[in-house]
Amino acid sequence: MPQNEYIERHRKLHGRRLDYEERKRKREAREPHKRAQTARSLRGIKAKIFNKERRNEKIQMKKKIKAHEEKKTKKVTEKVQEGALPVYLLDRDVQSKAKVLSNMIKQKRKEKAGKWDVPIPKVRAQADAEVLRVVKSGKTKRKAWKRMVTKVTFVGEGFTRKPPKFERFIRPMALRFKKAHVTHPELKATFHLPIIGVKKNPSSPMFTSLGVITKGTVIEVNISELGLVTQAGKVVWGKYAQVTNNPENDGCINAVLLV
């Protein structure tokens, strides 16, 4: 084992032998002949191994040549970017904004019909027994007319509970939600927005009026902070969103904005 880089050192001190370049050129010129000679004379497994190696080498070589050629003839036609901006906005990082609400009339019509193109069209119906738990009341716990809602609910601001005698449905404080994580499908961004109301719970109109939020429920959210504008130049305040998760399991409401 050499203990040092003595060859390099020698080379640095004395230089190479005078005919080094010529010998090198000749060796390189002889190389293909030598290779051909071995290829011709090899037999059996050795020939197989040799040919396989040589094939791989050739593939690599061809790849490299192609890459170099591509580099030389690069570009010419670059695609024009989409989303043209005027000069005064070019240097500002304008965050992608959602399109201004395109068709208010269509929107209104849909609202009237109570039908929306929702991301989750088919929703598993929630049975009454699943959502409402019977609460026994009375001195001997014989009466069973009270119900406790076991799903997430939205209760409007300023709601006061009725006296116990008249309160048929109890909506527990712990399951009341005020905000939802709403994703804008065009912007691909999520916002934490206050809920305005429950528009429709597909399972039953009673759940709608109770404000029960389950998967597939259409809720109205306050999107004024998104800064969307109508065509008439007014800020849009409320918009509908559909719940995409099971809030009672997850502890949060995720929804997709209906645009």
Partner: peptide, 20 residues
């Protein structure tokens, strides 16, 4: 950016018309 043009009257410095 709110998608409207607005027309202003400079005499009274007020909004003369909204052009959505």
């Amino acid at each position: 950016a709110d998608s409207t043009l607005k027309l202003w009257n400079l005499d009274g410095m007020k909004l003369q018309g909204d052009l959505p």
